[in-house]
């Protein structure tokens, strides 16, 4: 493979000590397979961090170590200042886990599911009743709280799955591919719920192989493949790390060569390629540059029939970093 590792680089670093989760050099092997290889990242309060990678990249193994389900072979996980150890009870109370597989009891109602897991989270009876109502309201299941969950749609089950993870108001919420197999409407509802969490100050670790979800939800994204973080940062930062530039394609008729000359003189234009009826421009920020580009080309005598902007996305970033498509 042609992957290249880019050192962890973050934008907008929170102050030291403000991190809810600090993962340092995690390693986990299964026999000869190294599922997670020297993974490090940190998440601050109110921040949503995405682990973006294809199936089998090591996302679930990583969060299993973060949640204390399995022990790392090397490295450490610190949650809210406490080192995670599967044998330590108290530190787990800071975490809300939403597993990839539905983790609800089909023969119980939503309220019964919430009550059972709430008791296991050691929430007092009165506080639990209040919190259950709040969570049901948050996930939009208040009017179906008394129905058996086996009668729910896939999206409703997913929302309840998330609600159980939120019940005890954890410092860190871990969502492992929460929208897998969900219809578009429910998916949107789930994403809106997650967006609201970061507003409330909760740190969110979100794994997905859907590029759009990572772009929409995550303040920072770690691109993971074959057990390693290949690159990390905001969406824009990742695009820049890979040398990503925007393209503006102008189609039309007239004096194409004169327009090319005029456009090359603009400071925001990096490169201009021209043929008989089309101009292909390489720019750093196409949305900002496009108006001036159109004006310049028109004034140079080109009658434009079409303008198209192409910006690099996380898909292209992943392709650039690993040499393969995100959904391979």
């Amino acid at each position: 493979m042609s992957a290249k590792t880019i050192s962890n680089t973050r934008l907008d670093h929170p102050a030291a000590g403000a991190y809810v989760l600090e993962v340092q050099s995690l390693v986990r092997r299964f026999g000869d397979l190294t599922a997670v290889d020297d993974v490090s990242f940190r998440i601050a309060a109110g921040e949503t961090y995405g682990l973006l990678g294809p199936n089998g990249a090591g996302k679930t193994t990583t969060i299993s170590m973060v949640a204390g389900l399995i022990s790392p072979d090397a490295g450490s996980v610190v949650v809210a200042g406490q080192t995670m150890d599967p044998k330590k009870v108290e530190v787990k109370g800071n975490i809300g886990l939403v597993p990839q597989d539905l983790a609800i009891y089909p023969d119980l109602t939503a309220r019964e599911n919430l009550r059972y897991f709430g008791r296991l989270q050691r929430i007092g009876r009165d506080a639990l009743d209040r919190r259950i109502d709040e969570v049901l309201d948050l996930i939009g299941l208040s009017d179906r709280a008394g129905d058996l969950t086996k009668e729910y749609s896939g999206g409703m089950k997913r929302r309840l799955n998330i609600g159980i993870g939120l019940l005890h108001q954890p410092s860190l919420l871990i969502l492992d591919e929460p929208t897998v197999g969900v219809d578009p409407q429910s998916r949107n509802a789930i994403l809106e719920s997650v967006e609201a969490l970061s507003v409330e100050g909760m740190a969110v670790l979100y794994t997905t192989h859907y590029m759009e979800e990572a772009e929409r939800l995550c303040d920072r994204i770690g691109i993971i493949d074959e057990g390693r973080i290949q690159a990390e940062g905001s969406r824009d930062h990742l695009v820049r790390l890979t040398g990503g530039v925007d393209h503006i394609r102008l189609s039309g008729s007239g004096d194409i060569e004169a327009a090319a000359q005029a456009l090359r003189a603009l400071p925001e234009i990096e490169q201009v390629d021209a043929d008989r009826r089309m101009l292909m421009l390489t720019v750093h920020d196409a949305p900002t540059a496009v108006a001036r580009v159109v004006t310049t080309a028109t004034e140079a005598g080109v009658s434009l029939s079409d303008v198209e902007i192409t910006r690099p996305d996380l898909e292209s970033v992943f392709l650039h970093l690993t040499g393969k498509a995100l959904r391979d």
Partner: peptide, 8 residues
């Protein structure tokens, strides 16, 4: 998995 993530 959820049970094992509980504080117990």
């Amino acid at each position: 998995a959820r049970l094992q993530s509980m504080p117990m």
